[in-house]
Amino acid sequence: MTVATSVRSLESKDRGSAPRLPRSPRGGRLAKRQQRPGMWFALPAAALLALFFAYPLAVSLLQSFFSTSGGETTFVGLKQYARLFEDPLVGQSLINAGLILVVQVPLMIGLAVGLAYLLNQAWLRFKGGFRLMTFLPAITTLVAYAVVFRVMLATDGGAINQLLGIFGVAPVDWLNNEWWARVALIGAITWRWTGYNMVIILAGLQSIPGELYEAARIDGAGRWQTFWHIVVPQLRPVLIFTIVTSTIGALQLFDENFVLTGGGPNNATLTPVLYLYKVGFQQFDSGYASAIAWMLVALTAIISLIQFRLMREKA
């Protein structure tokens, strides 16, 4: 037994044998009195949270068990949820969201890590300007940039097709072809959110102690070995955060495909949230829309939990 172990065992014995002093009732009442002002300050925020978050959640969950037809609302139990498995558009929207999740999220996170690693190098000049240029898309409004992309991707006269025409490439029907519509949507989302994730990853890079780089250099590690064995393990918490938030964003995608393609062509860019919007606000089927929303909540929670578990196991 080492000295440190024996000292810890003696300390634990001393703590275990020490008598516990009874807690003063006056002290307990005093602590409660001291907490009251904080509770009063927190009450407005709690009321707003209950009014604008908890209450809508409860109402939407309740609506998912009812169906409205001919002005009459009837209790249908789990029929709205059973309807999800029979609706082909639900499956199509989930496939589209899965495609974006599998292709766009790794592409975006990879670009963000590469840009952050580049901007963290000591030899790079004008870092502030490059960071601003990279992060600038993240502060533009979603609808505004989607409209700009819609104009740029127009088949006739769009800036992208004009640029391709300089190199002798025929115009591409970006927004009316199923394949190219998906490519355009993934490209727009990647342009918008890469800088946002890059800033978060860059903050993680700058928190890595310089002694680790120095130790790796002394051991003869190259750039790739340093990146893989030093940078990536130290960035794992940041990567977990960016991957999970990007996954949630991919599953909740609405603005970009609503403005760019409206979910078309032929439902190629239809996502669960866009389908929820069409069911709830165009077909006025609030019960089924609520069921779609809670399906999406459950799916997001399951995927996020799986990602957390996988990343922790690798850690």
Results as ranks from 00 to 15, higher is better:
residue 122 A to F: 10
residue 270 L to N: 03
residue 286 S to Q: 11
residue 210 G to C: 05
residue 193 W to I: 06
residue 223 R to C: 11
residue 14 D to M: 13
residue 78 L to W: 15
residue 32 K to I: 06
residue 167 F to C: 03
residue 35 Q to Y: 11
residue 103 V to C: 15
residue 82 A to K: 02
residue 286 S to V: 13
residue 159 A to W: 06
residue 70 G to N: 11
residue 144 A to Q: 02
residue 13 K to Y: 14
residue 247 T to D: 03
residue 225 Q to V: 12
residue 174 W to A: 04
residue 296 L to Y: 00
residue 173 D to T: 08
residue 217 R to L: 11
residue 142 L to S: 09
residue 50 A to W: 08
residue 201 I to Y: 01
residue 280 G to S: 09
residue 2 T to W: 11
residue 64 S to M: 07
residue 199 V to S: 01
residue 120 N to Y: 00
residue 41 F to G: 04
residue 151 V to R: 05
residue 117 Y to D: 14
residue 110 G to H: 06
residue 212 L to I: 08
residue 206 Q to D: 07
residue 164 L to K: 01
residue 295 M to D: 13
residue 79 K to V: 15
residue 9 S to T: 14
residue 211 E to Y: 11
residue 270 L to H: 00
residue 263 G to S: 04
residue 286 S to I: 10
residue 154 A to C: 07
residue 22 P to D: 11
residue 196 Y to H: 03
residue 202 L to F: 05
residue 219 D to I: 08
residue 302 I to S: 13
residue 19 P to Q: 10
residue 75 F to Q: 05
residue 308 F to H: 08
residue 117 Y to K: 07
residue 36 R to K: 02
residue 184 A to G: 00
residue 44 P to C: 00
residue 8 R to I: 15
residue 97 A to E: 00
residue 172 V to T: 03
residue 296 L to V: 00
residue 180 W to F: 15
residue 26 R to E: 13
residue 245 T to E: 00
residue 67 S to G: 14
residue 119 L to F: 04
residue 73 T to M: 00
residue 183 V to R: 05
residue 51 L to W: 04
residue 40 W to I: 05
residue 15 R to A: 09
residue 34 Q to M: 06
residue 187 G to N: 06
residue 99 L to V: 13
residue 144 A to P: 10
residue 90 V to T: 14
residue 38 G to L: 15
residue 79 K to H: 08
residue 251 L to T: 04
residue 315 A to R: 10
residue 30 L to Y: 04
residue 174 W to F: 01
residue 95 I to Y: 09
residue 71 G to N: 09
residue 199 V to G: 01
residue 48 L to C: 04
residue 309 R to S: 02
residue 183 V to E: 13
residue 214 E to M: 06
residue 134 T to R: 14
residue 58 A to C: 13
residue 309 R to I: 09
residue 136 L to N: 04
residue 62 L to N: 12
residue 97 A to I: 09
residue 257 N to M: 07
residue 224 W to M: 04
residue 132 L to R: 15
residue 110 G to S: 10
residue 70 G to A: 05
residue 218 I to W: 15
residue 266 N to L: 10
residue 41 F to V: 13
residue 256 E to K: 11
residue 125 R to E: 05
